[in-house]
């Protein structure tokens, strides 16, 4: 058996190449791998080993970051299947989605201006629900239907939702401090 360890993150963590991964298995594999390659294990060894360990640990961290969260995992899976989420040819959005984006942005901006923390929390909560639904959609699109172009649109929606959540986080922090 000869695995190309650098080939893709799914094989690095010993996982099948699907969207609905076993996150617990990922976590376990991640810890096992880091236990093996982490720079703390190589601190007393010569420079070459220390550098290799840093490169490996960096790679393993990158893999974990990529597979752990649905958004990054979805993007990555699509890219493995030849669909780049943010390539130019792919950024055309449905008018509905653009409309929806604008409404959300306005709602957040309004709550921020009004310094309405409760409203911001409420919006955050709704976004979380929306994100959950979107992840479900994505799972169907990728794992069941192999509809990668549809999935790319879902990923972009998720990206938008995540960005909004960040904005709300920042707004809330601004209110608190």
């Amino acid at each position: 058996m000869d695995v190309d360890l650098r080939r893709d993150f799914f094989s690095l963590f010993g996982l099948p190449r699907v969207f609905a991964i076993d996150t617990e298995a990922l976590e376990l594999a991640y810890r096992d791998l880091q236990s093996l390659v982490h720079p703390d294990r190589y601190a007393h060894l010569p420079e070459t080993e220390r550098r290799l360990s840093m490169q490996w640990a960096t790679h393993v961290n990158e893999g974990y970051r990529t597979l752990r969260k649905p958004l990054a995992r979805g993007r990555y899976l699509l890219s493995l299947n030849g669909v780049e989420v943010d390539s130019e040819s792919n950024t055309a959005m449905s008018p509905d989605f653009l409309m929806e984006q604008m409404e959300w942005r306005e709602a957040v901006e309004e709550a921020r201006t009004a310094e309405d923390a409760a409203e911001l929390e409420r919006l955050h909560h709704r976004l979380r629900q929306l994100a959950g639904e979107m992840v479900e959609t994505l799972r169907g699109q990728i794992d069941a239907h192999h509809d990668y172009h549809g999935a790319a649109e879902s990923v972009r929606r998720l990206m938008f939702i995540e960005k909004l959540q960040h904005d709300i986080d920042d707004a809330l922090l601004g209110l608190e401090s």
Binding site: S11, A29, V37
Partner: peptide, 18 residues
Amino acid sequence: MDQSIRQALSGRRVDTVG
């Protein structure tokens, strides 16, 4: 380094790595 990672991988999940 590659060898030790490969060993760890195959030791635990021969079936999934493929």
